[in-house]
Write a protein that binds this DNA or RNA. Structure first.
Length: 529
RNA sequence: GCGGGUGUAGCUCAGUGGUAGAGCGCGACCUUGCCAAGGUCGAUGUCGUGAGUUCGAAUCUCAUCACCCGCUCCA
């Protein structure tokens, strides 16, 4: 297959997965009945279970099963000063401008100052079709360049507004030409001399006003939706240390939402302006930072394996000097092979002491760690940050789980079986319980008993409609790993040997085994943990 | 942000100016003794939204929203 065919096939696969997610109730578009909200998605009943399972497992592995990591849950609304200290306010909201001709977006502060002659125009006309447009436009011509270039560029610009695209830009009459000498201007694109739009600040963060009667211009009423969860942890670092008798190295973990306004939503839930992060800030001594970063990378790779994202679909990128965030001296990206490309799931970044230092300086509060092991010396710990995208991981799990299998029955008829091969730990529903027939009250009653036995320990789905085969397939489509069928043997119709046993059907192999009801719970609990 | 494409039932789609359709799915009943069985009946649509042209618009025009693809951006 050519690259193009593979990419088309993957695009088809992605469409199918998106449809399947909607059809089964994993993921819906936000505000769909009002036409949808750009890049926002809601988790439906099954998606909510899946996400909960992922977050619970992450929390269990990274917080509850470790005695060196504590959890917290910070507020989403964030104090202005926190973001000043972290550098999110100010430093990163670079003014940008767009080239009026090519639409290229440039950082205003990175434009090389130029000198030369500006050719200004007030509009253009096309006599034959009685078309005209009026707008101010200019082209910068440097000394070595021909003034013809100014007219050519201007015609090209005005031709963008032609309704009849057949008309050649050369046929346009330029209006109101005048010239102006300038030195060191940054209002023109160095690439093509075209006028740029005014420099505009780009809103990297969602901003809101605190207080019902807030004044829009009152800086103290400003609050921001956090652009990353990490800052909540750094800001509360001292409180956690003071109240928990912790010793280096130790971590603080958090799962929560973050918001980034500048994100251009793409690829289903992969890139959204609102997203959930699962991250640990693991504090340590400076000399251990680099080693711990490597150790965390390995731990995280094991985690993905445990939730059903295989190692061979993951790629680790060691981000080179110059491409890392300014605060980091070592960063690994963990990427997954999505149908739409290899894309990042998680970053494991060694953030040094950058963040705590910044908050210490900005808040002027002593947030140092007191090192009792070294005679009460004060120090600012370094930090290693494994930061995973929760929604991205969900999407990876869904893409990985989705499978279509061609099955040939006894009559030689082919059918496609859709299966979500979730790891049983992650599956939204763990087991389906079915009476073989619904019009036999004894079967229904026994099946309800089995349901009751299991329901306090796991998510059980009871279904008595349609033929048994169809019920199995319905569960396959949503990734339920096990099915339990209550039949006449369960009731003792074939003698005591089979009494109180059920058929246990496994999703991936479709194999069926006979199991006593009394063994069902321990068997399933073992599989789903 | 730019360019291209798409939008009709829960899903996949047909319908290109004249009564809103199919397959699958869904519900009820009958039948059914372990892998999408059969029968009968049934429900489901602001044709993405708004405006315009027209005697008449799902269909043509414009705007807008959303999604997909390619660029751009992603501290």
């Amino acid at each position: 297959m050519s690259d193009k065919e593979i990419s088309e096939k993957n695009a088809e696969l992605m469409k199918t997965i998106v449809s399947h997610c909607k059809e089964c109730g994993f993921i819906f578009q936000s505000a769909e009945i009002y036409g949808g909200l750009n890049g926002c998605w809601d988790y439906g009943p099954l998606g909510a279970e899946l996400k909960r399972n992922l977050k619970d497992y992450w929390w269990r592995v990274n917080v509850q099963e470790r005695d060196d990591i504590l959890g917290m849950d910070g507020s989403i609304l964030t104090h202005r000063s926190v973001l000043e200290a972290s550098g999110h306010l100010g430093g990163f909201s670079d003014p940008m401008c767009d080239c009026l001709l090519s639409n290229a977006r440039l950082r205003a502060d990175q434009i090389e100052p130029q000198s030369g002659t500006i050719y200004w125009y007030t509009g253009a006309t096309h006599a034959e079709s009685d078309w005209s447009t009026e707008r101010e436009y200019g082209v910068l011509i440097q000394e070595s360049q021909d003034e013809k270039k100014a007219r050519k560029t201007a015609r090209l610009f005005f031709s963008k507004f032609l309704s009849d695209k057949q008309i050649s830009p050369k046929k346009l009459e330029l209006q109101g030409e005048r010239t102006e000498e300038v030195t060191d201007t940054i209002r023109f694109n160095p690439e093509n001399g075209s006028l740029l739009t005014e420099a505009r600040d780009f809103n990297l963060m969602f901003k809101t006003q605190m207080g019902a009667s807030s004044d829009e211009n009152d800086i103290n009423a400003e609050a921001y939706l956090r652009p990353e969860t990490a800052q909540s942890i750094f800001v509360q670092f001292k409180n956690v240390v003071d109240t928990n008798r912790v010793k280096l190295p130790f971590g603080i973990a958090q799962i929560g939402k973050s918001f980034r306004n500048e994100i251009n939503p793409r690829n289903f839930t992969f890139r959204s302006r609102e997203f959930e992060q699962m991250e640990v800030e693991y504090f340590c001594r400076a000399e251990d930072g680099s080693r711990l970063t490597d150790e965390w990378l390995e731990l995280r790779l094991k985690f993905y394996e445990a939730i059903g994202v295989p190692r061979e679909k993951l790629h680790v990128i060691d981000i080179p000097d110059g491409e890392r965030a300014h605060y980091s001296s070592k960063t690994y990206d963990i990427e997954y092979e999505f149908p739409f490309g290899i894309q990042e799931l998680e970053g494991v970044a060694y953030r040094t002491d950058h963040d705590l230092k910044a908050h210490k300086e900005h808040s002027k509060k002593p947030i140092d760690y007191i090192d009792q092991e070294n005679g009460g010396q004060k120090l600012i710990p370094h930090v290693v940050e494994p930061s995973a995208g929760c929604d991205r991981t969900i999407l990876a799990m869904i893409c990985e789980a989705y499978d279509e299998e061609t099955i040939t029955d006894e009559k030689g008829k082919e059918a496609v079986r859709k299966v979500m091969r979730f790891d049983p730990k992650m599956a939204p529903i763990k087991v389906g319980v079915f009476p073989l027939l619904k019009n036999k009250p004894e079967l229904v009653e026994k099946a309800r008993e089995v349901q009751k036995l299991l329901v306090k320990h796991m998510n059980v789905f009871y279904d008595e409609t349609a033929a048994i085969g169809r019920r199995y397939r319905r569960q396959d489509e949503i990734g339920t790993p096990f099915g339990v069928t209550i039949d006449f043997d369960t009731l003792g119709d074939s003698g005591d040997e089979l009494k109180d046993t059920v058929t246990l059907r496994e999703r991936d192999s479709m194999e069926q085994t006979r199991m006593p009801i009394s063994e069902l719970l321990p068997f399933l609990l073992d599989k789903i943990h």
